[in-house]
């Protein structure tokens, strides 16, 4: 029987995305610890990667994942991030098993599926696994675009079902 086309053609993403890992090796510099693992540009390739790697909750404390548009490094200094900021979702330790992994997956799917109305303002997302407080940050390109940034924050809260406030930090302030 003929295989239906949708099983033959991989579903292309609007953008190519890179998965980064931050290793937290004390003997290395911060930049040496930040490693671009691979990049992907189809839904199928994303899932193949996702099934292949550890979940955030399985990472050692001090490690990060970042998913950024290919060509943007997950650091303030990158030209695409300099004028930008991040929406920050804090997760207590007890949420590590209940919320961390599903929030992270939902955020990544929002990114790669271009589900933000102002998706061109999106640079990427970072998940920090830390002793007390895990953090998921969604990085945007230009903090002067207030409506775009607010819409991105609203969509995040809606998708993740967060009722309280979430904070937005300008990178230059965090610097």
């Amino acid at each position: 029987a003929e295989v239906p086309p949708e099983f033959l053609i991989k579903h292309p993403l609007q953008n190519t995305w890179s998965l980064w890992f931050y290793d937290n090796d004390r003997n290395k510099t911060w930049e040496q610890n930040l490693i671009e693992l691979t990049s992907f540009d189809t839904v199928e390739d994303f899932w193949r990667l996702y099934h292949h790697i550890k979940l955030p909750s399985e990472l050692r404390q001090g490690h990060d994942y970042a998913v950024f548009k290919h060509g943007i490094r997950p650091m303030w200094e990158d030209d695409a991030n300099k004028m930008g900021g991040r929406w920050l979702i804090n997760l207590e330790k007890k949420q590590r098993n209940s919320d961390l992994d599903r929030f992270w997956l939902d955020v990544v799917l929002l990114l790669i599926g271009e589900n933000f109305e102002y998706s061109e303002e999106i640079c990427g997302a970072v998940v920090n696994v830390r002793p007390k407080l895990d953090k998921i940050g969604v990085w945007t390109a230009d903090t002067s675009k207030q409506q775009a940034n607010l819409e991105i924050g609203r969509k995040l809260k809606e998708q993740l079902g967060i009722h309280g406030k979430i904070g937005f930090q300008l990178h230059r302030d965090t610097m």
Binding site: F7, H11, P12, L13, Q14, V43, E44, F46, W47, D106, L109, L110, I112, G113, E114, N115, S119, Q159
Partner: peptide, 18 residues
């Protein structure tokens, strides 16, 4: 311009495709 958008549910449906 146009943009390739995938809903979460659609991407989830491809989670185990070969």
């Amino acid at each position: 311009g146009t943009r390739i958008v995938y809903e979460r549910s659609f991407m989830m449906s491809l989670r185990h495709s070969p």
